[in-house]
């Protein structure tokens, strides 16, 4: 499988890319089975949305309930970040069908694993953002009769989400890259399909993996750029 002797940079053949372009970009979308770059984007977006909701929720819980709940949240976040992401995928890939007892679409365990993993980072970033707000913001809200919950909802959280936006964008970029781990369990996103094409054609690893890397690079850049726009827009 390793690069064959006798082929170098000089023999670069873009034909293998054009022949497999639609497969790498959206897999078997025509048969109702999205794959490739499209599936990568779908997985990153859904895992990102789940991670954002869960992570912000965890951060609010940790903010409002110091003590045992906060310590438990920290402990589980550190635990989840202490093991390789692959293992979280393994666990969910194995446990989800066992627990739900039925057919689980292949991408679902990976999406959940990515969301779970990222939610820990979202929690830490959000909590840091809340704690970095000047403490006068909370005091001013309380002084005018708002409850702790109202102060959080109307004064602290809106400012935190805006301030932490750059971290969220960075986390989404990481998520895009982390979807490639679906390769390990054969979910047909971009990396897996690139591996398939490489196995099938055998002769063009340079072309295939450079093209794949370029797609990821452009996607990550696009996310960063759009995120940066969004953050500036809301000022």
């Amino acid at each position: 499988m390793r690069g064959r002797p006798g082929r170098g940079v000089m023999d670069f053949d873009p034909g293998v890319i054009t022949r497999n372009l639609s497969y790498l970009l959206w897999g078997r979308l025509a048969e109702g089975d999205p794959g490739g770059l499209l599936l990568t984007i779908l997985m990153a977006v859904s895992a990102g949305a789940l991670a954002l909701v869960a992570g912000v929720g965890f951060a609010l819980a940790a903010w409002r309930c110091p003590g045992t709940i906060r310590r438990l949240l920290f402990l589980s976040a550190d635990l989840i970040r202490g093991i390789p992401l692959i293992f979280i995928i393994f666990w969910l890939y194995f446990l989800l069908p066992a627990l739900l007892g039925g057919d689980v679409p292949g991408a679902a365990p990976v999406i959940l694993a990515l969301a779970w993993f990222s939610s820990a980072a979202v929690m830490y970033s959000t909590l840091a953002g809340l704690e970095a707000l000047p403490k006068g913001q909370r005091e001013a809200a309380l002084a005018s009769g708002l409850s702790e919950g109202q102060a959080l909802r109307w004064v602290l959280l809106p400012q935190t989400l805006r301030n932490v936006m750059p971290s969220y964008v960075a986390l989404l970029v990481s998520l895009v890259k982390d979807t490639s781990l679906a390769f390990i369990v054969n979910v047909t996103e971009l990396s897996t399909l690139a591996g398939q094409v490489n196995n099938r054609t055998q002769l063009y690893p340079m072309e295939i993996f450079l093209f794949t890397a370029a797609l990821y690079f452009l996607l990550c850049r696009a996310v960063s750029l759009a995120g940066g726009r969004l953050a500036r827009l809301r000022h």
């Binding site: 000047p134 006068g136 005091e139 001013a140 002084a143 005018s144 400012q159």
Partner: peptide, 14 residues
């Protein structure tokens, strides 16, 4: 607190 207005040194506008 609704009966008492408070003005801070650092303004603390939202």
């Amino acid at each position: 607190r609704t009966r008492i207005g408070f003005v801070f040194q650092q303004f603390n506008l939202y």
